[in-house]
Design a protein around this nucleic acid. Structure first.
Lengths: 117, 117
DNA sequence: CGAACAGTCAACCGAATGGTTGTATTTAAT
DNA sequence: ATTAAATACAACCATTCGGTTGACTGTTCG
């Protein structure tokens, strides 16, 4: 009935709340990556990174294709789109106000230059 | 290299990962509400609900105005907008198909008018 | 004044989280 | 046939989470 009770959103927002996982998603935006490739930038055991990948996978944000001993991960945009859709309802709170819109654009710019996320 | 972290996004996405807190935000979209009013729909102690409000507040999603013994909460759209802005980068993954389709149609249109001329 | 109300805070609890190490399995390379 | 690579899985650990209860601080009201 109401979208804010969706278990999908629980899992997706939880997955997005970790910077390591957001960085992995960002990496996957460049195309398929193996688990090792996803793990490489982080000062963390492979098993640790593998758990992060699994969180992304169970949240439906990532899918996996096994080729030989390598697991290739791919970004699943649908769940991201669902999460973004949740914000739609609240958009009126900033699209009605130009000063807030300005802040949005600045935040967006800041994020783009920060990269990695 | 240690990557830049976005503690804002960490806190905001974590706050949004709980259905109780999302429902509270939805309630606040109707205007200011006291902590008790926010707590009322839930089968939960007031202290428990108060902790949820605090999570929303520390994430910057809610601000508080104290009047007498009542704490009035208000939705803070800016942080919501920042979180939504995070998705902007990934939007191409679900608008891509539409963009490509549009490009094809435009090319066909051009070709059609070329043929006619 | 004293009682009820609005809310926080601290302590506690069980479950989940984010990390580790060690072991196992399957696959690729020598 | 060994060995190395890619990954999962299980067990463990400290910390955080979501919730509780009970005590405490102010505030309003009779």
């Amino acid at each position: 009935m109401v979208e804010y009770q969706s278990p999908h959103l629980d899992a997706v927002f939880h997955a997005l709340s970790d910077p390591t996982r957001r960085a992995m998603l960002h990496r996957l935006s460049g195309g398929e990556r193996s688990v090792s490739q996803l793990a490489q930038p982080f000062d963390m055991s492979l098993a640790g990174a593998s758990k992060h990948v699994k969180v992304l996978e169970t949240a439906g944000l990532v899918s996996r294709r096994v080729d030989g001993r390598t697991h290739y991960c791919r970004l699943e945009a649908l769940r991201l789109a669902e999460a973004q859709a949740w914000f739609r309802y609240y958009e009126r709170f900033w699209t009605e106000r130009l000063d807030t819109l300005q802040a949005i654009l600045e935040a967006e710019d800041r994020q783009r230059s920060d990269g990695k996320d």
